[in-house]
């Protein structure tokens, strides 16, 4: 069964088309990554999915319910974690959760129980009575997650959940999302952190200039550019970029004291590096050959279009 189904979605602001006729579906229980550069149409798509914006054309179904004709019923099925930890600073963590619970029609007893359980799970129970305006960004984001899951949604829509967070908060957010997915919640995630999407998502969709340019598992997407590999090398001393410009290297970038060389012929490049080291009397500290990363796929796809 499909948890989210988007068919021919088009969103226009005045005459400007932000999202052009896109279609995709999210399998129930999956962790779906929605990636794209700034201004690609991610936020507009999310706002349409969550019922915040009314699209110009197209159909959106959440757990089989059309959000345009039955917005309230569709919204009951999902939880939303908007970007920038949007919770009420003038309310306590507990009050924010109770407010969310009231919107979803939870009884007082269920609200109390869910609030206690979720705040404990997110490490916020001790601070439940503190005003959120005194919280750090990481703690606010936890409250935001808590508000989104108080009613046990079947679908969770998450916009840039780890943006600007410290390492501990980021890990907690990622672990919580992973755990929710393992418990059966379908997660629709947008992020700028490609490595995060690679780790978490079983399906990734890439949007560019309002159009979907690729959809598949991270492995499938990487196979699209299987020919592009990289060789990462570091020597005993710094080698200038110009010394490594050979014909079979498509792109190079500095990594600390070494270089990452992108190539379609890694064996030839490794041999070339070895010859170069001998000729220049250099010692190779480390050398590794890797396949394309999801980030590389993302860059290649969004550059090409």
């Amino acid at each position: 069964m499909k948890a989210i189904e988007v068919t021919h979605l088009t969103c226009m602001y005045g005459r400007f088309t932000v999202v052009h006729d896109i279609s995709f579906s999210v399998r129930k229980g999956s962790f779906f990554g929605f990636l794209g550069p700034n201004g690609a149409g991610k936020t507009t798509t999310i706002r349409s999915l969550t019922g915040v914006l009314t699209p110009s054309a197209g159909l959106i179904r959440i757990q089989g319910i059309d959000i345009l004709s039955q917005p309230l019923q569709a919204k009951m099925k999902m939880g939303v974690i908007p970007e920038s930890s949007t919770v009420y600073g003038d309310l306590t963590a507990e009050q924010n959760m109770h407010l969310a619970g009231k919107f979803y029609g939870l009884s007082s007893a269920v609200r109390e129980q869910n609030t206690r359980e979720i705040l404990t799970r997110l490490g916020l129970y001790e601070r439940r009575s503190d005003l959120v305006r005194h919280f750090s960004k990481g703690l606010r984001q936890r409250v935001s997650i808590a508000c989104a899951i108080i009613h046990g949604p079947e679908v969770l829509i998450v916009d840039e959940p780890t943006s600007g967070l410290d390492v501990q908060s980021r890990r907690l957010v990622i672990d919580t999302l992973r755990q929710l997915n393992q418990e059966g919640t379908t997660i629709f995630l947008t992020t700028h952190n490609i490595e995060e999407a690679n780790q978490l998502c079983d399906t990734v969709c890439i949007i560019q200039a309002g159009k979907i340019i690729a959809t598949g598992s991270p492995t499938e997407l990487k196979q699209m550019f299987e020919t592009t590999r990289s060789v990462t090398v570091s020597f005993n001393k710094v080698v200038p970029k110009t010394a490594l410009i050979w014909g079979n290297i498509t792109r190079m970038e500095q990594t600390g004291e070494g270089w990452r060389l992108y190539t379609d012929e890694p064996d030839a490049v490794v041999k070339g590096i070895s010859d170069f080291a001998k000729q220049e009397n250099l010692t190779i500290h480390s050398i590794t050959t890797t396949g394309p990363s999801l980030e590389e796929v993302f860059v290649r796809l969004t550059e090409d279009t």
């Binding site: 917005p71 309230l72 019923q73 949007t86 919770v87 600073g89």
Partner: peptide, 14 residues
Amino acid sequence: RERTYERLLAYPVT
């Protein structure tokens, strides 16, 4: 300004 409006619209309210 506080960006809570978007969340409010995403709750089951019209």
